[in-house]
């Protein structure tokens, strides 16, 4: 019985991974794509790892899976933050559909006030 439950949860997880992949292709710019790449993948991986827990029903498997979910939730937003930040500073800009940008003016001010801090590397 729990095998069917595990299969269902596994499918839901895999489905959200698919959505994340489609999002990467269909959305217009780096920032919108990061939405798909962080939210749907954490949810998808959560589903897949939950299915692992349900299928094996062993304490040592469960603890590893729970830890993996925990660290994924911790690291995915950090990665998304760094990628979008680096993208804004160095790479392609916002998609033409973008309606509002309050970050650009801030960045311009920051660059004009401090010459040394206009590079990502010098921030670390």
């Amino acid at each position: 019985m729990s095998e069917y439950l595990a299969a269902a949860v596994l499918l839901i997880g895999a489905f959200f991974m698919l959505v994340a992949g489609l999002g990467l292709i269909r959305l217009p710019d780096v920032y919108s794509r990061m939405h798909a790449a962080t939210k749907a993948t954490t949810f998808g991986m959560g589903g897949i790892l939950s299915a692992v827990i349900l299928f094996f029903q062993a304490a040592h498997v469960a603890t590893h899976a729970i830890l993996a979910i925990f660290f994924l939730f911790l690291t995915a937003p950090v990665a998304a933050h760094l990628i979008s930040r680096a993208a804004y500073r160095k790479g392609p800009g916002l998609a033409p559909v973008t309606r509002l940008d309050e970050y650009g003016p801030y960045l311009a001010r920051e660059r004009s006030t401090s010459q040394t801090k206009n590079d990502i590397n010098s921030h670390n």
């Binding site: 920032y31 798909a36 309606r99 309050e102």
Partner: peptide, 25 residues
């Protein structure tokens, strides 16, 4: 988190991508 995923799902799977993105402070 659950609401977020349903929303991403709706955006990504809709036949035409309709978003009005932007960055706010």
């Amino acid at each position: 988190l659950i609401v977020a995923n349903i929303q991403v799902l709706r955006v990504v799977l809709s036949p035409r991508i309709r978003i009005r993105p932007g960055i706010l402070a």
